[in-house]
């Protein structure tokens, strides 16, 4: 038997056990691939891994919902497209996410939305499709979106810095961050709302 007792999961017992909602731009998320599970534990969380090496189970994204539609096919399912400055997230909510599903159903696009959910992948032939299985969906405002973009720029820059990816890969993601940066800089000409 392999000596692999130290799996790094027994963190400080005081820590609140919950998967952090990672911040990731749509462009990086889209290229993520599923991470194979280590064991047979059905409760082991599922992860996807991005080209920069970030392992993601849960995500938090804020963007513009551009489309929301009922794609029920035997089972109830809502699908929503959420755009950030770099691309589009595909978001699903089904029978096990009734609150998120209702929120999408009641949405009038376009709208600023915040989405909390689990990263999901679906393989079709050679192609891997990533999506978010929503846990919570809420309508927010532009300020929240801008804050999310700024935060995600910061986190992504740090991720690029620490990434073991090739220089070419890093360079292409630096370009993605630039694009996001331009989008919020363009927005920052609007005066901040008074408190």
């Amino acid at each position: 038997m392999a000596e692999n007792a130290n799996t790094n999961t027994s963190s400080n017992p005081q820590k609140f056990e919950r998967e952090t909602a990672k911040r990731v731009f749509a462009h990086e998320f889209k290229g993520a691939v599923p991470v194979e599970k280590l064991g047979n534990d059905q409760f082991e969380p599922a992860y996807v891994q991005t080209a920069l090496g970030e392992k993601i189970n849960r995500v938090f994204v804020v963007g513009v919902a551009t489309e929301a539609e009922d794609v029920s096919n035997g089972e109830v399912m809502m699908r929503m497209r959420v755009a950030d400055p770099t691309g589009v997230f595909i978001v699903y909510a089904g029978q096990y996410q009734p609150e998120a599903r209702d929120a999408i159903m009641n949405l009038r696009v376009p709208a600023f939305v915040a989405v909390v959910g689990k990263a999901h992948t679906y393989a079709k032939g050679e192609q891997v499709y990533t999506s978010i299985r929503a846990e919570n969906v809420n309508v927010v405002d532009e300020k929240t979106r801008d804050r999310w973009v700024k935060e995600t720029i910061e986190i992504t820059r740090e991720r690029i810095k620490n990434s073991k990816a090739s220089d070419d890969t890093k360079k292409s993601y630096e370009g993605m961050v630039e694009t996001a940066q331009k989008a919020v800089s363009a927005n920052s000409t609007t005066p901040p709302a008074e408190k």
Partner: peptide
């Protein structure tokens, strides 16, 4: 309450208690 808080950013001053 959910509509008012989910997905929004906050800064709180908090007292740590156990894991909360």
């Amino acid at each position: 309450i959910v509509k008012k808080v989910i997905g929004r950013y906050f800064t709180f001053k908090c007292a740590p208690i156990d894991t909360n």
